[in-house]
Amino acid sequence: MSSIEELKGQLAVVTGAASGLGRGLCSKLGEQGARLVVADVEQKALDSLAADLRSKGVEVTTVLTDVSKRDEVDRLAAIAADIGPVDLLFNNAGVSEAPQPSSGLTEDDWAWVLGVNLMGIVHGTSAFLPAMIERNQGTIVNTASNSALGSVGFVAAYTASKHAIVGFSESVQYELWQRESAVKIVVSLPGAMSTRMADSARNRPAEAEGRKPSEAELAIMTAHISHGISGEQAAEIVLAGVSRGDFYVVTHPEDLDTATRRYEGLMTGRLAPPVAPIATE
Protein backbone atom coordinates (compact mmCIF):
# COMPACT_ATOMS: atom_id res chain seq x y z
CA MET A 1 0.00 0.00 0.00
CA SER A 2 1.68 3.18 -1.13
CA SER A 3 -0.91 5.73 -0.02
CA ILE A 4 -3.85 5.97 2.34
CA GLU A 5 -6.07 6.86 -0.63
CA GLU A 6 -5.65 3.27 -1.80
CA LEU A 7 -7.56 2.01 1.25
CA LYS A 8 -10.91 2.37 -0.47
CA GLY A 9 -12.42 -1.07 -0.95
CA GLN A 10 -9.52 -2.88 0.74
CA LEU A 11 -10.24 -5.47 3.41
CA ALA A 12 -8.69 -4.82 6.82
CA VAL A 13 -8.79 -7.06 9.89
CA VAL A 14 -8.31 -5.45 13.31
CA THR A 15 -7.93 -7.34 16.59
CA GLY A 16 -8.43 -5.63 19.92
CA ALA A 17 -10.74 -3.47 17.86
CA ALA A 18 -13.31 -2.31 20.39
CA SER A 19 -11.25 0.22 22.35
CA GLY A 20 -8.15 2.42 22.32
CA LEU A 21 -5.89 2.23 19.29
CA GLY A 22 -7.98 -0.56 17.78
CA ARG A 23 -11.15 1.52 17.77
CA GLY A 24 -9.19 4.47 16.40
CA LEU A 25 -7.83 2.34 13.58
CA CYS A 26 -11.32 1.12 12.71
CA SER A 27 -12.62 4.67 12.62
CA LYS A 28 -9.83 5.95 10.37
CA LEU A 29 -9.86 2.90 8.10
CA GLY A 30 -13.61 3.22 7.72
CA GLU A 31 -13.32 6.90 6.86
CA GLN A 32 -10.99 5.96 4.03
CA GLY A 33 -13.47 3.43 2.62
CA ALA A 34 -11.91 0.20 3.83
CA ARG A 35 -14.07 -2.82 4.53
CA LEU A 36 -13.54 -4.14 8.04
CA VAL A 37 -13.47 -7.40 9.94
CA VAL A 38 -13.22 -6.44 13.60
CA ALA A 39 -12.31 -8.79 16.44
CA ASP A 40 -12.37 -8.37 20.19
CA VAL A 41 -12.92 -10.43 23.33
CA GLU A 42 -15.74 -8.14 24.57
CA GLN A 43 -19.02 -8.75 22.73
CA LYS A 44 -20.88 -5.65 23.98
CA ALA A 45 -17.99 -3.36 23.08
CA LEU A 46 -17.71 -5.07 19.71
CA ASP A 47 -21.41 -4.55 19.03
CA SER A 48 -21.10 -0.89 20.01
CA LEU A 49 -18.17 -0.43 17.63
CA ALA A 50 -20.03 -2.11 14.77
CA ALA A 51 -23.12 0.05 15.31
CA ASP A 52 -21.02 3.19 15.25
CA LEU A 53 -19.19 2.16 12.08
CA ARG A 54 -22.35 1.08 10.27
CA SER A 55 -24.02 4.40 11.10
CA LYS A 56 -21.23 5.98 9.05
CA GLY A 57 -21.72 3.62 6.11
CA VAL A 58 -18.77 1.34 6.84
CA GLU A 59 -19.01 -2.31 5.79
CA VAL A 60 -18.10 -4.26 8.93
CA THR A 61 -18.15 -7.86 10.15
CA THR A 62 -17.66 -8.67 13.84
CA VAL A 63 -15.98 -11.80 15.18
CA LEU A 64 -15.72 -12.49 18.92
CA THR A 65 -12.11 -13.63 19.26
CA ASP A 66 -9.64 -14.47 22.00
CA VAL A 67 -6.34 -14.06 20.14
CA SER A 68 -4.50 -16.19 22.68
CA LYS A 69 -6.36 -19.20 21.26
CA ARG A 70 -5.06 -20.35 17.87
CA ASP A 71 -8.33 -22.00 16.84
CA GLU A 72 -10.24 -18.76 17.37
CA VAL A 73 -7.75 -16.80 15.27
CA ASP A 74 -7.94 -19.46 12.55
CA ARG A 75 -11.73 -19.03 12.61
CA LEU A 76 -11.28 -15.25 12.29
CA ALA A 77 -9.01 -15.78 9.27
CA ALA A 78 -11.52 -18.16 7.66
CA ILE A 79 -14.40 -15.69 8.10
CA ALA A 80 -12.29 -12.89 6.63
CA ALA A 81 -11.22 -15.08 3.69
CA ASP A 82 -14.88 -15.73 2.84
CA ILE A 83 -15.34 -11.97 2.45
CA GLY A 84 -12.28 -11.49 0.27
CA PRO A 85 -8.49 -11.38 0.26
CA VAL A 86 -7.16 -9.59 3.34
CA ASP A 87 -5.06 -6.56 2.44
CA LEU A 88 -4.27 -5.34 5.96
CA LEU A 89 -4.03 -7.16 9.28
CA PHE A 90 -3.66 -5.18 12.50
CA ASN A 91 -2.51 -7.51 15.29
CA ASN A 92 -3.48 -5.04 17.97
CA ALA A 93 -4.98 -6.85 20.98
CA GLY A 94 -3.06 -6.30 24.20
CA VAL A 95 -3.27 -6.51 27.99
CA SER A 96 -1.10 -5.70 31.00
CA GLU A 97 -0.71 -7.20 34.44
CA ALA A 98 -1.25 -5.10 37.56
CA PRO A 99 1.98 -3.28 38.52
CA GLN A 100 3.91 -5.45 40.97
CA PRO A 101 7.39 -6.87 41.59
CA SER A 102 8.34 -9.47 39.00
CA SER A 103 8.85 -12.04 41.76
CA GLY A 104 5.14 -11.80 42.53
CA LEU A 105 4.00 -12.71 39.04
CA THR A 106 2.33 -16.10 38.80
CA GLU A 107 2.50 -18.59 35.96
CA ASP A 108 -1.04 -17.50 35.12
CA ASP A 109 0.10 -13.86 34.92
CA TRP A 110 2.82 -14.77 32.43
CA ALA A 111 0.56 -17.09 30.43
CA TRP A 112 -2.20 -14.48 30.16
CA VAL A 113 -0.02 -11.49 29.19
CA LEU A 114 2.25 -13.39 26.81
CA GLY A 115 -0.70 -15.37 25.47
CA VAL A 116 -2.53 -12.23 24.35
CA ASN A 117 0.32 -9.82 23.58
CA LEU A 118 2.88 -12.11 21.97
CA MET A 119 1.09 -15.30 20.98
CA GLY A 120 -1.87 -13.29 19.72
CA ILE A 121 0.48 -11.73 17.17
CA VAL A 122 2.10 -15.06 16.40
CA HIS A 123 -1.32 -16.63 15.84
CA GLY A 124 -2.50 -13.75 13.67
CA THR A 125 0.64 -13.80 11.55
CA SER A 126 0.54 -17.57 11.15
CA ALA A 127 -3.13 -17.52 10.17
CA PHE A 128 -3.04 -14.65 7.66
CA LEU A 129 0.51 -14.50 6.27
CA PRO A 130 0.45 -17.60 4.00
CA ALA A 131 -2.42 -16.21 1.88
CA MET A 132 -0.66 -12.84 1.64
CA ILE A 133 2.54 -14.55 0.49
CA GLU A 134 0.59 -16.52 -2.10
CA ARG A 135 -0.90 -13.27 -3.45
CA ASN A 136 2.43 -11.47 -3.00
CA GLN A 137 0.45 -8.63 -1.46
CA GLY A 138 -0.54 -7.45 1.99
CA THR A 139 0.62 -5.70 5.14
CA ILE A 140 0.66 -6.91 8.74
CA VAL A 141 0.88 -4.26 11.46
CA ASN A 142 1.93 -5.53 14.89
CA THR A 143 1.23 -3.31 17.89
CA ALA A 144 4.13 -3.22 20.35
CA SER A 145 4.72 -0.23 22.66
CA ASN A 146 7.18 2.47 23.55
CA SER A 147 8.03 0.02 26.37
CA ALA A 148 10.00 -1.86 23.71
CA LEU A 149 12.28 1.18 23.27
CA GLY A 150 13.20 1.27 26.95
CA SER A 151 12.04 -0.53 30.06
CA VAL A 152 10.46 0.32 33.40
CA GLY A 153 9.99 -1.70 36.55
CA PHE A 154 6.95 -3.47 37.97
CA VAL A 155 5.44 -4.54 34.62
CA ALA A 156 7.91 -7.26 33.64
CA ALA A 157 5.48 -9.47 31.71
CA TYR A 158 4.06 -6.59 29.67
CA THR A 159 7.52 -5.20 28.93
CA ALA A 160 8.93 -8.58 27.96
CA SER A 161 6.02 -9.20 25.60
CA LYS A 162 6.49 -5.87 23.83
CA HIS A 163 10.23 -6.38 23.33
CA ALA A 164 9.44 -9.85 21.93
CA ILE A 165 6.94 -8.41 19.45
CA VAL A 166 9.64 -6.19 17.94
CA GLY A 167 12.08 -9.08 17.59
CA PHE A 168 9.40 -11.33 16.10
CA SER A 169 8.36 -8.65 13.61
CA GLU A 170 11.95 -8.01 12.52
CA SER A 171 12.56 -11.72 12.03
CA VAL A 172 9.45 -12.20 9.90
CA GLN A 173 10.33 -9.20 7.74
CA TYR A 174 13.82 -10.58 7.16
CA GLU A 175 12.23 -13.86 6.02
CA LEU A 176 10.01 -11.98 3.60
CA TRP A 177 12.96 -10.06 2.18
CA GLN A 178 14.92 -13.26 1.73
CA ARG A 179 12.12 -14.85 -0.25
CA GLU A 180 11.70 -11.59 -2.23
CA SER A 181 8.10 -11.21 -1.14
CA ALA A 182 6.27 -7.90 -1.49
CA VAL A 183 4.35 -8.55 1.76
CA LYS A 184 5.27 -6.04 4.46
CA ILE A 185 5.50 -6.14 8.24
CA VAL A 186 5.08 -2.96 10.29
CA VAL A 187 5.63 -2.65 14.03
CA SER A 188 3.88 0.24 15.77
CA LEU A 189 5.35 1.62 18.99
CA PRO A 190 2.63 3.75 20.55
CA GLY A 191 3.33 5.92 23.56
CA ALA A 192 0.88 7.21 26.14
CA MET A 193 -2.69 6.87 24.91
CA SER A 194 -6.02 7.42 26.59
CA THR A 195 -7.10 3.76 26.62
CA ARG A 196 -8.53 1.15 28.98
CA MET A 197 -5.20 -0.70 29.21
CA ALA A 198 -5.01 -0.01 32.95
CA ASP A 199 -8.24 -1.99 33.36
CA SER A 200 -7.02 -5.00 31.36
CA ALA A 201 -8.07 -7.31 34.20
CA ARG A 202 -11.70 -6.83 33.14
CA ASN A 203 -10.96 -9.28 30.33
CA ARG A 204 -8.83 -11.70 32.31
CA PRO A 205 -10.19 -15.26 31.96
CA ALA A 206 -11.59 -16.74 35.16
CA GLU A 207 -9.12 -19.62 34.97
CA ALA A 208 -6.13 -17.24 34.81
CA GLU A 209 -5.83 -16.44 38.50
CA GLY A 210 -3.71 -13.49 39.58
CA ARG A 211 -3.71 -10.22 41.44
CA LYS A 212 -5.94 -7.52 40.02
CA PRO A 213 -5.12 -3.84 40.55
CA SER A 214 -6.70 -2.23 43.60
CA GLU A 215 -9.10 0.67 43.11
CA ALA A 216 -6.33 3.05 44.17
CA GLU A 217 -3.83 1.55 41.67
CA LEU A 218 -6.42 1.59 38.90
CA ALA A 219 -7.13 5.25 39.61
CA ILE A 220 -3.42 6.12 39.48
CA MET A 221 -2.84 4.25 36.22
CA THR A 222 -6.00 5.59 34.61
CA ALA A 223 -5.10 9.16 35.57
CA HIS A 224 -1.63 8.71 34.08
CA ILE A 225 -2.76 7.44 30.69
CA SER A 226 -5.73 9.83 30.52
CA HIS A 227 -3.24 12.53 29.54
CA GLY A 228 -2.13 10.57 26.48
CA ILE A 229 -3.25 11.08 22.91
CA SER A 230 -6.52 9.57 21.73
CA GLY A 231 -6.77 6.26 19.92
CA GLU A 232 -7.78 8.11 16.76
CA GLN A 233 -4.75 10.39 16.95
CA ALA A 234 -2.47 7.39 17.37
CA ALA A 235 -4.25 5.60 14.51
CA GLU A 236 -3.62 8.54 12.17
CA ILE A 237 0.10 8.35 12.95
CA VAL A 238 0.20 4.57 12.48
CA LEU A 239 -1.65 4.69 9.16
CA ALA A 240 0.59 7.50 7.94
CA GLY A 241 3.59 5.30 8.72
CA VAL A 242 2.04 2.39 6.85
CA SER A 243 1.43 4.71 3.90
CA ARG A 244 5.08 5.79 3.87
CA GLY A 245 6.26 2.20 3.96
CA ASP A 246 7.88 2.55 7.40
CA PHE A 247 8.82 -0.54 9.38
CA TYR A 248 8.91 1.16 12.79
CA VAL A 249 6.14 3.65 13.59
CA VAL A 250 6.66 5.71 16.75
CA THR A 251 3.66 7.80 17.82
CA HIS A 252 5.58 10.04 20.23
CA PRO A 253 8.84 11.52 18.84
CA GLU A 254 10.16 12.06 22.38
CA ASP A 255 10.27 8.28 22.81
CA LEU A 256 13.15 8.19 20.34
CA ASP A 257 15.25 9.85 23.06
CA THR A 258 14.55 6.81 25.23
CA ALA A 259 15.77 4.54 22.46
CA THR A 260 18.90 6.66 22.03
CA ARG A 261 19.66 6.49 25.75
CA ARG A 262 19.19 2.75 25.72
CA TYR A 263 21.61 2.17 22.88
CA GLU A 264 24.11 4.62 24.32
CA GLY A 265 23.93 2.47 27.42
CA LEU A 266 24.64 -0.61 25.34
CA MET A 267 27.78 1.03 24.02
CA THR A 268 29.05 1.70 27.53
CA GLY A 269 27.69 -1.41 29.23
CA ARG A 270 25.46 0.61 31.53
CA LEU A 271 21.68 0.53 32.01
CA ALA A 272 20.03 3.91 31.57
CA PRO A 273 17.51 4.86 34.30
CA PRO A 274 13.83 4.59 33.38
CA VAL A 275 12.25 7.74 31.98
CA ALA A 276 8.91 7.32 33.74
CA PRO A 277 8.93 4.85 36.65
CA ILE A 278 5.64 3.04 37.21
CA ALA A 279 3.70 4.32 40.22
CA THR A 280 3.00 1.43 42.59
CA GLU A 281 1.24 3.26 45.40
Rank of each mutant, 00 (worst) to 15 (best):
I165D: 04
A93D: 00
G191H: 08
N203L: 00
V242T: 08
H163T: 03
A279G: 06
G150T: 08
A208T: 11
V86M: 00
A111E: 14
V187C: 05
L149K: 04
Y158C: 01
G124P: 02
S145V: 06
G191Q: 02
P213Y: 00
E170N: 08
R196E: 15
G16P: 02
P253M: 07
L271H: 06
R35W: 11
L266N: 10
S3Q: 14
N92D: 13
R270V: 15
S3Y: 10
G153H: 07
N146L: 10
E180I: 03
R270Y: 03
A164P: 07
S171T: 15
Q43E: 15
S188H: 04
T222H: 00
A98E: 00
A81N: 09
D257G: 07
E97K: 02
T251G: 10
G33W: 09
I229K: 09
L189W: 08
H227V: 05
V58F: 07
E59F: 04
Q173N: 07
R23S: 15
L64V: 15
M119P: 01
E134N: 07
S194V: 14
A235I: 06
I237C: 13
D246I: 05
V95N: 07
A78D: 13
A223L: 08
G16R: 01
S161W: 02
G245L: 05
S169L: 02
R135E: 00
A148N: 05
E264G: 06
L53K: 12
E72G: 05
G245F: 04
V183L: 10
S55M: 09
S103P: 03
L29F: 11
I165T: 11
E42G: 10
V37A: 14
P190C: 12
G150C: 04
L105P: 10
S2F: 11
D66H: 09
V250E: 08
A198H: 10
G167N: 08
A223G: 08
K162D: 05
S151L: 10
D74I: 15
G153M: 04
A131F: 00
D71N: 12
H163R: 11
A182Y: 03
E97M: 00
A223W: 01
I225T: 13
Q43D: 13
A201C: 06
T280F: 02
V58A: 14
V14T: 05
A156E: 09
A259S: 12
E209S: 15
M193S: 09
A18N: 07
L76K: 05
I133T: 02
T65F: 07
L256D: 07
K28A: 10
W110L: 13
T268F: 12
A182N: 14
L266K: 07
V172F: 15
L46F: 12
I165L: 09
G245C: 09
A276F: 09
D74G: 02
W110T: 14
S194M: 09
G94C: 02
L21V: 14
L239P: 12
P99L: 02
M132Y: 05
T62A: 11
L239M: 14
G33T: 13
G150A: 14
L89S: 00
A192Q: 12
N91Y: 02
L189I: 15
A148W: 04
